[in-house]
Write a protein that binds this DNA or RNA. Structure first.
Length: 499
RNA sequence: GGCGGCAUGGCCAAGCGGUAAGGCAGAGGAUUGCAAAUCCUUUAUCCCCAGUUCGAAUCUGGGUGCCGCCUCCA
């Protein structure tokens, strides 16, 4: 089976066939950089990161472009609020965006164009649309005329004529007066007094929201791209309008496949800025939620379905990740105990797709099941199920060794286990799940110094040696009240973790 | 009102006509001064009604409930 994806524009599950064999051009709608990213953004970019990783793993050459919208009403307002420049706002948020995405292990896009740096392309495209009659200029504003684009509504399944009553009250009278059709949308917005602006053939102003994507796709990737990505909330009007602009200009399809991710919900409702029910990525990471927990949380649901965010589901993901992580750590930490030396390590090369021989029939089957799930419209929850099955014996051995058990394996057993470990490392990496070193954004809110903890542990050890358990328990409780949990290991060593 | 989506055990969630993956929680056992962790074992007939079929969670029709988009939004 080959990769199948649900194409929003046809509403069907389709075989994915690149325009040029072996190559994939992807455009992903990015963020408007007026504020920090929240969990909804995290979901979107984690899911598309997995798509990208999977395509690369399959051997395709992927070019991934994602934009920054760095000029817009919200940015202008934010700058006014903070009494600073829009440049300061956008630079700051772009930096934080990168920090957040890097922390989540999201591969950086190959290119990240910005609206304010693509103005030439934007103006060219607008000129072209005016020239061919698809757009018109009114007093320094330029609008796209949707009636000139007969296929308008094809992505979102809207019939404009039956929609007209929806527009009542949603646009101002002034707008209605200026626009030929109430659904016409701005390609270029005339600057109001004292607003930041850029020069254009139609006077000072700034680009409308949708036009930057059309211009960037053309400039960065060409007329027709393979895949266009975004959140489901962008289908209308954003992507509908992008299609109208690009296709009215070129006469060709903008993208072959349109993919949209489902929303993150809180208590059954969409997480959004306007509802105020959002949690930023930063806040979660700073609270000690690990990036991989977040990734697992996101990937446990299918990307097109809504995903409810609750404390419980996040905790469940954290526990799940701990288990998967102990399996991934097995070869990293205990290779010596298992007799995996450097030669046995290097017998296989990672990324060959037809490696049934290296993995054997049992593992080959698991690998195949994983691939079948992923090929079926990126069914990551199914794929994770397979991963947990592979992980189970590895996790068990990893934990048993950690708890002081000595594991003795036959040579053949050891070899099978090694291959199993290699398999899970390889497949997990496809989902971006990798053993992590540290969480760079974690703020340690320690009430107590590490050295202090060690002192108390030593004191407790001494008390235990003297069978003074009352005192030992008192120390345990004291540390517990400061968020420190003690774990006695069978080898007589006491470890601790911050809760 | 228009368009689209969803409904599976305590919670999350696969399943795409052949008799319910997986994670979390729970239960039982092992281990433990206590605690935690860990190991082993274990837990469902799929919102309702009707139909198609030898056979349906899966297909069709009709309900009910929830969500998203139609204004900025990942």
């Amino acid at each position: 089976m080959s990769l199948k994806l649900t194409n929003t524009i046809t509403r069907k599950l389709e075989d994915f066939i690149p325009i040029v064999e072996g190559q994939v051009n992807i455009y992903c709608c990015g963020v408007t950089v007026y504020d920090l990213c929240h969990l909804g953004h995290a979901r979107s970019y984690i899911v598309w990161d997995v798509l990208r990783r999977y395509l690369i793993w399959k051997g395709l050459k992927v070019t991934f472009v994602q934009n920054f919208t760095d000029i817009d009403d919200k940015i202008i307002n934010r700058a006014l609020q903070e009494n600073t420049s829009i440049n300061e706002i956008t630079e700051r948020n772009i930096n934080k965006f990168h920090e957040d995405m890097d922390a989540l292990g999201i591969l950086r896009p190959d290119r990240m164009p910005r609206a304010t740096r693509c103005l030439e392309g934007i103006c060219d495209l607008i000129s072209q649309l005016i020239a061919n009659g698809s757009a018109y200029c009114v007093n320094g504003d330029v609008y796209f005329s949707i009636e000139k684009f007969s296929e308008y509504g094809k992505l979102s399944g809207r019939d404009i004529t039956s929609q007209e009553k929806n527009i009542a009250g949603r646009i101002t009278q002034e707008e209605e007066y200026r626009k030929n059709h109430p659904f016409d949308f701005a390609l270029w917005k005339k600057a109001k007094p004292n607003e930041p602006s850029f020069p254009s053939p139609w006077g000072k102003g700034r680009p409308g929201w949708h036009i930057e994507c059309s211009a960037m796709v053309k400039e960065e990737l060409g007329i027709t791209i393979d895949i266009h990505l975004g959140g489901a909330d962008l289908i209308f009007p954003h992507h509908e309008n992008e299609i109208a602009q690009s296709e009215a200009a070129s006469g060709k399809d903008l993208a072959k496949y349109w993919l949209h991710n489902g929303m993150v919900n809180v208590a059954g409702q969409k997480m959004s800025k306007s509802l105020g029910n959002f949690t930023t990525i930063r806040a979660l990471l700073q609270q000690g939620v690990s990036p991989m927990t977040l990734r697992l949380f996101v990937l446990q649901a299918h990307y097109r379905k809504p995903l409810d965010f609750t404390k419980d589901s996040l905790d469940a993901a954290a526990k799940g990740w701990m288990g998967l992580n102990s399996a991934l750590e097995l070869g990293k930490i205990y290779s010596k105990q298992l007799g995996w030396n450097s030669t046995t390590f290097s017998t296989t090369n990672e990324s060959s797709l037809d490696s049934e021989n290296t993995f054997g029939p049992q593992l080959g089957l698991l690998r195949e099941r994983f691939i079948n799930y992923m090929d079926d419209d990126l069914n990551t929850s199914g794929a994770l199920g397979v991963l947990f099955e592979i992980a189970r014996p590895l996790k068990s051995i990893s934990n048993r060794i950690e708890h002081g058990e000595s594991i003795v394996l036959e040579k053949e057993e050891s070899k099978i286990l090694l291959n199993q470990w290699k398999l899970i490392v390889e497949l997990s990496k496809t989902l971006g799940l990798e053993t992590e070193q540290s969480n760079p954004l974690l703020i340690s809110k320690s009430e107590i110094e590490d050295s202090n903890i060690r002192e108390l542990i030593d004191l407790r050890m001494k008390a235990k040696g003297e069978k003074d358990f009352a005192k030992a328990d008192q120390i345990r409780d004291e540390l517990k009240s400061k968020g420190i949990e003690l774990i006695d290991k069978p080898n007589g060593i006491t470890e601790w973790i911050r809760k």
